[in-house]
Amino acid sequence: MTALIAWLGAGLITLGLMFFVAGTVGLLRFSPSINRLHALTKADTLGLGLVVMGLALQAPAVAVALKLVLIWSLALVSAALVSHLIGQSLCAQRRDP
């Protein structure tokens, strides 16, 4: 049972890392900044979520797992907020010149 959970956790982390790689490639390759933002938030939300889920499965105690989830939700809020602000700034720059 523990081995199964460990493997499941490792699988989830690997999957999450793949999202990070894809997100980073997107960040580097996409051209308009809005698209880059899109790629980045995928890595941040989904990638981090999967990594956190994998880690939570392997956590020694429920409290640790809950803390990990808290970190994830804070990262969610900040990612949404930052994307919103960057988006606004991009719109403003498009209007300015």
Partner: peptide, 12 residues
Amino acid sequence: FHPVQGRVLATA
């Protein structure tokens, strides 16, 4: 500065 539009930031 570009002023921030809306209440998203303030609320958060």
